[in-house]
Design a protein around this nucleic acid. Structure first.
Lengths: 196, 196
DNA sequence: TTTGGTTGATTGATCAGTCAACTAAAAATA
DNA sequence: TATTTTTAGTTGACTGATCAATCAACCAAA
């Protein structure tokens, strides 16, 4: 274990441990000791690097958001210029292997609740919501008239959030394929009915 | 204040106070003292009537579920035999004045999170999910082929949950009308496209 | 010998749950 | 009717456990 430049390693390990702890408990009601223990360090060290628990939680949310953003950009790049494929890419990213796993789903849900109390978390979640909406609307813009694109983007976003929350209620490994299929079916129906 | 038969009054007051406290905090992280204070009694009395905090929370969830169930039955009765109107009724109930208010929305969200830890709360939420699904599928059965009815029922249920979670993120009074309009638009599109 | 990394021990606050005691209404008894 | 007894309702004070946050000290590399 190198003694130099431990800070980024520890921060990353603590953030991963936070997601893992939230996943295990199913809520943000996790202790600093639990998190630190999962990262293999003492709780004092977690405080040393993050100051307060609240900041660690915010950093964790930021990390999840950043990963989702990076995945989305990569997927959009891979989808090219075809608008229909771009919509599919935006949808698929939210149910990809790296996002749609139990601990991440639990974290999303828990952060939604915590956002009621923490303005900073609410701000972060709003950024996510705006980005998702903007990605969807921009891709749908080429397929539907503006007003329909707006409504459809909102519907897809609500569907995604709804599938997350419902999946959290089920046991076992979440089935991403059926979730994607459901959203895709909605999209296909809407396009068939409303496409210009 | 009568000394006789206080128990049902106190239980009701404490359950109402629990919803109010959850609404104010935005999560289940409320103290027995806070709840009891809102009900105008001491925390010891809350323990006297409910034993443990967990039981009070369960009773509160049961109360919300019972109210929603009663509203749904009434709405279905009022809708009569017309299947299309029955679907609309099931949707509308979830966004009715008595259900779609900030404190109730916060409570739903918080209970979803807590359900990860509490088997009893998970059981209750599953009952709600099954009932909603069953109501939707039964009403849709007359309008769509069985397979489509199943998928559409799941989509509408996910849409409703998604709209709840998204509304929790916004400030101010939730706008039920636009939420209903969004679900109704989805339904109209689906029926137009897939109706037998 | 400085500096970054690390921890055990401690503190102070919070909170669920308990308990003994008090009140007043109702029921039983004289 | 008048008195005692029981019972339901209620609380303030307390306990024990938990946990975020702090701090003085320690270690090892540079």
């Amino acid at each position: 274990m190198p003694k130099t430049g431990m800070e980024p390693l520890r921060r990353k390990a603590l953030i991963d441990a936070t997601i893992s702890a939230i996943g295990a408990r199913g809520s943000l009601d996790v202790t600093m000791s639990d998190i630190a223990g999962r990262a293999g360090v003492s709780s004092a060290l977690a405080h040393h690097y993050f100051g307060a628990k609240e900041e660690l939680l915010q950093a964790t949310m930021r990390h999840i958001l950043a990963e989702l953003g990076a995945d989305a950009r990569a997927a959009l790049r891979a989808a090219g210029a075809d608008q229909r494929r771009r919509v599919a890419a935006v949808i698929a990213v939210n149910f990809s292997e790296s996002q749609f796993r139990p601990s991440t789903i639990a974290a999303w849900l828990a952060f939604y609740v915590e956002a009621q109390r923490s303005p900073e978390l609410r701000r972060l979640l709003r950024i996510y919501a705006r980005r998702l909406h903007s990605n969807l609307k921009s891709a749908l813009g080429g397929l539907l008239p503006p007003c329909e694109a707006e409504l459809t983007a909102e519907s897809i976003a609500a569907l995604i959030d709804g599938l997350y929350i419902r999946r959290a209620l089920k046991d076992g490994t979440p089935n991403a394929d059926s979730a994607v299929a459901l959203v895709e079916d909605y999209l296909a129906t809407t396009l068939a009915q409303k496409a210009r």
